[in-house]
Design a protein around this nucleic acid. Structure first.
Lengths: 339, 339
DNA sequence: CTGAAAGCGCTTACAG
DNA sequence: CTGAAAGCGCTTACAG
């Protein structure tokens, strides 16, 4: 009668089901959650009532009452980047069959967004949390501090070795590609990056260390821009780098989108790749191998990262302690035609 | 004392906050949700307690008590397809500032997944629902039937005109590109598609109608495969089509990934595009314009779709009736070099 | 401006 | 195998 009652008219509750099945609320509850602990007759009556009323259980109420949750929050910086899509898909493939539901939050590489999402998602009491990388604002860190369920970090490896994480050394990957480029004889190797998220900067640091080690480091050959990565931006970065430093003989791009753009631009400019200019990328997206020349890049196993992180979280949520706190999935430098 | 109590030790509740602030539970509640209706002194004490205890409100409890929800469920078939990523991003941009949170579900083009997601998400009592297209299983339709909050359908337009939807006529888009190809003088135009979701089939139907109208329809030139779209598959479809029907002078691909693959393959085979074979795609992904030859394709405004659908949902959730139930955002045939 | 009580829809020990 | 009661964390009318 009160306006609160009105909702019951709109959607059936468990107590409607119980009434319709002629049993108590809690028998109805049990028939649904532990069907084997209930008589066949009761179970059938309840199921019939569920069907007749179109009953859909109220997850939030269930979670609240049971002090459990089937929600997993995963926070990634971007969905436009295929790397994270692959990771999320893999996570979903292991967590969904286990009865969990994913809440996917996209921070767009903004620390404030990251914090906002963390706050919003933790307010849902997720059973587990998957975050990308270790860097976050103090406020975000504080929010995380009050969270008591398992957390697994994606993409990066903790130095501290006291956090659960699945990833690879971004610095090492940046270093490895730079080393290869030097081995191939390139001397004036530029590094071009956008977005400037922590992983990009770690790769840049890897590049820097190797270039310094070879006494070839020149800060002017580093082009870092906070803009969003895109094919068009890659083309633009190529233009800028070559205009200012025609001596450049190779460019190592922070990701494949940028490198693809550079390859397209080189073609427009009739620049011979890799003879005049070598181009390398990062991630090995599907298009990389198909380009002409085929793109030299670093292959990352994000599917593996998602899968292993999902499994680690699963075992943590079961209260087990996983064999390893930190899983290094590695990476692979793939030399193709462009460098 | 009981094991139930233990949770309170782990995370602060509103009643902990109230105790710490020396006020009633409901004053604390009010201080948080309607800060202006509370004295400055009280507000400050409550805020201090919140901070000190690291209190995070329990969204599920709030939603349950208030019979409201800040959750919006959106169900899309894929995240690997940039089209849906763009759509979701746009939706998020309008709904998030309004205080809503997105639950993103990916059905992988499987009706059973679609149904499962619908069931799982509706169990969270979302304030609104965004779904992709109209086709779904009977079971899914039944689940939807019990849902009483607003629903807006993305991508397609309803014939019935009794549903809320934002999209464009996929059939018309397929027809328009086919017409253009005929105008350009191509005669043996093949249609190649993967995934075979409803929208793909509608585009195929558009192609069919136009080809029939021109008395050029040949069922053998339609290559439909349920496989997942990818660049590699596009290359493969080109091979198959040309092997069986060398007379083909143009291929209209169901999406850009496929068309890109065909362009790459054509280059490997030294096939002149468009002289020997014209290639057209669908969606106008970023790479399309950069290819060589640049890809002829159909530009779809998924950002617009997401934005308008989000706005429509917003006004429906406010109880308003939006000016239009059905918004046609159209499409644009973009003729470039490949056809 | 502030508070006591009831209730959101469900589950969990505890009895029988 | 089944049920009455209490409680999950919060908000909502209703009083004062």
């Amino acid at each position: 009668m009160s306006s609160r009652r009105r909702r019951s008219l709109e959607r059936a509750t468990l107590s409607d089901v119980a009434r319709s099945a002629g049993c108590s609320l809690m028998s109805a509850s049990r028939a649904l959650s532990q069907p084997e602990r209930v008589s066949d007759a009761l179970r059938e009556r309840v199921m019939a009532a569920v069907k007749a009323l179109g009953y859909v259980p109220h997850t939030a109420a269930r979670n609240l009452a049971s002090a459990r949750s089937n929600l997993i929050a995963v926070i990634i910086p971007s969905l436009s980047n295929a790397v994270f899509v692959d990771t999320v898909e893999a996570i979903q493939r292991v967590l969904m069959p286990a009865g969990y539901e994913l809440m996917i939050g996209v921070s767009h590489y903004h620390p404030e967004e990251d914090e906002r999402l963390l706050r919003a998602y933790l307010a849902h009491q997720p059973a587990g949390l998957l975050v990308t990388g270790f860097e976050r604002s103090d406020a975000a860190r504080e929010v995380l501090g009050s969270y008591t369920s398992p957390i697994v970090t994606l993409m990066e490896l903790s130095d501290a070795d006291e956090e659960y994480c699945v990833g690879f050394s971004q610095l090492e990957a940046g270093a490895a590609m730079t080393r290869k480029l030097l081995e191939r004889g390139y001397r004036n190797i530029a590094f071009a990056a956008a977005q400037l998220d922590p992983r990009t900067l770690q790769r840049a640091e890897g590049y820097r260390q190797v270039m310094r080690g070879a006494s070839r480091y020149d800060a002017a050959l580093e082009l870092l821009t906070p803009q969003v990565s895109s094919i068009g931006l890659g083309a633009e970065l190529l233009d800028r780098l070559l205009a200012q430093h025609p001596e450049i003989d190779a460019i190592f791009f922070n990701n494949d989108d940028l490198a693809l753009g550079a390859l397209f631009r080189a073609r427009q400019l009739n620049l011979a790749v890799p003879e005049r200019l070598a181009v390398a990328g990062f991630n090995d997206l599907p298009a990389a191998a198909w380009m002409h020349p085929a793109l030299t890049t670093v292959r990352t196993t994000r599917g593996e990262i998602g899968k292993l992180a999902g499994q680690m979280l699963l075992s943590l949520m079961r209260g087990e302690s996983p064999p390893q706190r930190r899983i290094d999935v590695g990476f692979e430098v793939v030399m193709r035609e462009s460098a």
